[in-house]
Amino acid sequence: MISLIAALAVDRVIGMENAMPWNLPADLAWFKRNTLNKPVIMGRHTWESIGRPLPGRKNIILSSQPGTDDRVTWVKSVDEAIAACGDVPEIMVIGGGRVYEQFLPKAQKLYLTHIDAEVEGDTHFPDYEPDDWESVFSEFHDADAQNSHSYCFEILERR
Rank of each mutant, 00 (worst) to 15 (best):
S3Q: 02
S3I: 05
L4S: 01
I5L: 03
I5P: 02
I5M: 00
I5F: 04
A6G: 07
A6Q: 02
L8K: 07
L8W: 04
A9S: 13
A9R: 00
A9Y: 02
A9G: 06
A9H: 01
V10D: 06
V10H: 03
V10L: 02
V10N: 06
D11V: 03
D11S: 08
D11I: 01
R12T: 03
R12M: 15
R12V: 06
V13D: 01
V13K: 01
V13I: 11
V13M: 05
I14L: 15
M16A: 14
M16F: 00
M16R: 12
M16V: 15
E17A: 06
E17F: 02
N18M: 10
N18E: 07
A19E: 04
M20A: 00
M20G: 01
P21T: 03
P21N: 04
N23C: 12
L24N: 09
P25W: 06
P25C: 10
P25I: 14
A26V: 02
L28P: 00
L28E: 00
L28A: 02
L28S: 02
L28V: 01
A29E: 11
W30P: 07
W30D: 03
W30V: 03
K32R: 05
K32E: 03
K32M: 04
R33G: 03
R33F: 13
N34M: 06
T35A: 00
T35V: 01
L36E: 07
L36I: 08
N37R: 10
N37G: 08
N37W: 11
K38V: 05
K38I: 06
K38Q: 02
K38F: 07
K38A: 05
P39L: 05
P39C: 11
I41K: 02
I41C: 15
M42S: 05
R44I: 04
H45K: 05
H45E: 05
H45P: 15
W47T: 01
W47L: 15
W47M: 15
W47K: 08
W47A: 14
W47Q: 11
W47V: 05
E48Y: 14
E48M: 13
E48S: 15
S49P: 02
I50T: 05
I50Q: 02
G51C: 12
G51S: 11
R52Y: 07
R52Q: 15
R52C: 14
R52E: 12
P53T: 15
L54N: 00
P55R: 12
P55G: 12
P55I: 12
G56Q: 09
G56M: 08
K58P: 12
K58G: 07
K58L: 12
N59E: 06
N59S: 12
N59W: 05
N59R: 03
I60P: 04
I60T: 04
I60L: 14
I60S: 01
I61V: 09
I61A: 02
L62K: 00
S63R: 03
S63V: 08
S64M: 14
S64A: 15
S64I: 13
S64L: 15
Q65M: 06
Q65S: 13
P66K: 13
P66T: 11
P66D: 08
G67P: 15
G67M: 15
G67R: 06
G67C: 15
T68P: 15
T68V: 11
T68C: 15
T68R: 12
T68F: 14
T68L: 14
D69Q: 07
D70G: 12
D70I: 13
R71T: 13
R71D: 11
V72H: 07
V72Q: 06
V72P: 09
V72M: 13
V72D: 05
T73C: 14
T73G: 09
W74T: 11
V75K: 09
V75D: 00
V75R: 10
V75H: 10
K76D: 13
S77N: 15
S77C: 13
V78R: 14
D79A: 10
E80W: 05
A81I: 03
A81G: 05
I82W: 05
I82H: 03
I82D: 00
I82A: 04
A83W: 10
A83H: 11
A83V: 14
A83F: 10
A84K: 06
A84H: 12
A84T: 09
C85L: 13
G86K: 07
G86C: 07
G86P: 13
G86T: 09
V88K: 07
V88W: 11
E90Q: 04
I91K: 06
M92I: 14
M92S: 05
M92G: 01
V93L: 02
G97S: 06
G97I: 00
G97D: 04
G97V: 01
G97A: 09
R98F: 14
R98M: 03
R98E: 03
R98Q: 03
V99I: 13
Y100I: 01
E101Q: 10
E101G: 09
Q102I: 13
Q102V: 11
F103P: 06
F103H: 01
F103T: 06
F103W: 06
F103A: 06
F103N: 00
K106I: 15
K106P: 05
K106H: 12
A107S: 05
Q108V: 07
Q108W: 06
Q108Y: 10
Q108L: 08
K109C: 08
K109V: 08
Y111M: 06
Y111P: 01
Y111H: 02
H114K: 14
H114C: 11
H114S: 12
I115E: 04
I115P: 03
D116T: 13
D116G: 14
D116C: 15
D116K: 15
A117G: 08
A117V: 10
A117Y: 02
A117H: 06
A117M: 07
E118M: 10
V119L: 10
V119T: 14
E120Y: 14
E120N: 12
E120L: 11
G121Q: 00
G121E: 00
D122W: 01
D122P: 00
D122I: 00
T123F: 00
T123L: 02
T123M: 02
H124P: 06
H124R: 12
P126H: 04
P126M: 08
D127C: 13
D127S: 12
D127K: 14
Y128W: 14
Y128R: 08
E129A: 08
E129T: 08
E129W: 10
E129N: 07
E129G: 15
P130E: 13
P130F: 12
D131R: 06
D131H: 04
D131F: 07
D131W: 11
W133M: 03
W133I: 00
E134G: 09
E134H: 10
E134M: 10
E134Y: 11
S135R: 15
V136D: 07
V136R: 11
V136I: 10
F137D: 05
F137M: 10
F137N: 08
F137E: 08
F137W: 07
S138V: 09
S138E: 12
F140G: 13
H141W: 06
D142S: 09
D142K: 09
A143E: 08
A143Q: 08
D144G: 11
D144L: 03
D144S: 07
D144R: 03
D144Q: 05
D144F: 03
A145I: 07
A145N: 09
Q146G: 08
N147A: 11
N147Q: 07
N147W: 03
S148H: 00
S148T: 10
S148D: 03
H149G: 03
S150T: 06
S150Q: 04
Y151M: 08
Y151H: 11
Y151L: 08
Y151S: 05
F153R: 03
F153H: 06
F153T: 05
F153C: 07
E154V: 13
E154R: 14
I155F: 03
L156Y: 15
L156S: 07
E157H: 07
E157L: 06
R158I: 05
R158C: 06
R159I: 08
